[in-house]
Every structure is written in C-alpha cells, then in structure tokens.
Amino acid sequence: MDKKNKIAAAVIAAVVLICASIIFIKNTITSQNRIAVIYRGGKVIREINLNSLSEPLEFDLSYDGHTNRVRAEKGKIRMQSADCPDKICVNQGWIDSGAVPIVCLPHKITIEIKGGADKIDAAAGGM
C-alpha cells in the first residue's frame, strides 16, 4: 500500500467514524422521549407521544386515493400496510429511535422519531 492509498483509507475511516457518531448520538437523544412526527410533503400532519401510549394505536392516512396504515405501540411505530407497489416502508418494520425515519416515497409520507420535551397530549393521541 503506497502513501496515497494510506491517506485515502484514513480519510474514509474518519468519515465512517463521524457517521457512526452521528447515528449513536441521534439514537441516544431520541430514545428517551420518543415523539413520532408524521410528515406529508414536508408538512407535519400528526404527532404522537410514543412513550405515553398505553394501548396500540392504528390509523389510516389517505391522500389522493392512496392509503397508508400506521400502527403505533408503546415506544415504537411502524407502517402497517400501504397500497403502493414497492412496500419498502412496510418492510422496514418498527422504528424505536430517530436513527433512520420511515419514508414512503410514492405517497410522500415520512415518519420520524424526535426526542425533546414532553409536551404532547398523549390522551388525545397527539392530533
């Protein structure tokens, strides 16, 4: 391995380390006070305090003739079903931290878990 290769390997290793740190920090911050935020086309359409859910919550998001069914349980959330052809969001399964959001590209729906202050009314399911 020559010098240039070594430098390149070191830079790439540093990038991996930075990315791993970002994931770790985001994971830690968002796994204490889990608030799921659902976006459609960049706008917040619903917020749910996942930690204070006492029983499972299931609801449909219907836009332009397409439906995504979201299921939330204590501390986690998933896309239960979707009528898109690829089912990528459904196959992703549960998320319980903000490390990666769930994205339904064809229907432009994103579910992100945020950390932060406990200010959302859990009893109302956070509408």
Binding site: C19, I22, I23, K26, Y39, G98, A99, V100, L105, E112
Partner: peptide
C-alpha cells in the same frame, strides 16, 4: 425534492457507512 421532507437526510450517515 420529491417529498419536500428534509428529514429524509437522516438516512445519510447510515447510507454512507453502507456505501463505504
């Protein structure tokens, strides 16, 4: 751009590690 949701960028660290 398609979804108008900037939060999707949270995928970047995970995907970068996978890309390496």
């Amino acid at each position: 751009i398609v979804t108008g949701t900037i939060q999707i960028l949270w995928y970047l660290p995970v995907l970068t590690i996978s890309a390496v």
